[in-house]
Amino acid sequence: MINKDIINYLELLYCLVNKELKIRYNYSFLGYIWALANPIAFAMIYYFAFKIILRIEMENYSLFLLCGLFPWVFFANSINRATISYKADTTLVKRIKIDLSAIPLSTVLQEGIHFCFSLPILVFLVFLLTQNIFFSWLYQIPILCILQLLFLYSFTQILSLSNVFFRDTEYLTGIFVSLSFFLTPIVYPINMVPEKYSIIFDLNPFAMMISNWRSVLLEGNMDIHRLLFFFCITFLFFLISQSLLKRYKFNMSELL
């Protein structure tokens, strides 16, 4: 019985994700370019702003930027898009009986798939510019991907639910994501942060993840401490999201 439920849920997810990917790529492989365009365009403009105008002192700054930007785009797009997912798909919530948690999760999964598509490019660029290949990537990259997915699932579940009850959530989330970008060591390295502000970065889950992505991709190292901390935050969010979902799932169709 439980098995049947899981298969049903997976099939539902598959349909929702597949649908969105097909729409986005419009049945052509050219759509793949769009998954890469966003982080690469931003990497170029940040390179111009920080390396050329502000003259940040760092070797391989472009690679440094890309290793932070790709996972960040996965974070930011998932959060922004999944927050409005219930509101955007009212027919699914109001008219059809499905497991509601699949709706934001399918958005996160789409972004995850975009990210996975862009990983080979990233790995290739790392190899091209540093001549390094780490065999530890074979387990490190999947671990980071899965952790990030779990985090985003729980976090966006909370946000998308609260957006149903409190419509300002999506605007606040937009501001939050934009601000978080600069409070996360993406365009600058974490060791440039003054000591007295380091607490922000020690507690920021995005910073934990981005710095791990960077050290994995550039040095083949994982910071286990930060990952454990990240996992604890994820687990906390997971518990909150599940209890909210259980409590409010029947109220949603009335409010949308």
């Binding site: 539902l12 349909c15 699914l92 059809i96």
Partner: peptide, 30 residues
């Protein structure tokens, strides 16, 4: 329920794909 015909239909998908998406949403196995 047949309370809204074609809930979950998307205009950019082909009829074929919509059958699978909508059919799944209605509770059919793939």
């Amino acid at each position: 329920a047949m309370n809204e015909l074609g809930g979950g239909f998307h205009p950019d998908l082909t009829g074929r794909d919509n059958v699978f998406v909508n059919g799944r949403l209605m509770g059919n196995r793939l």
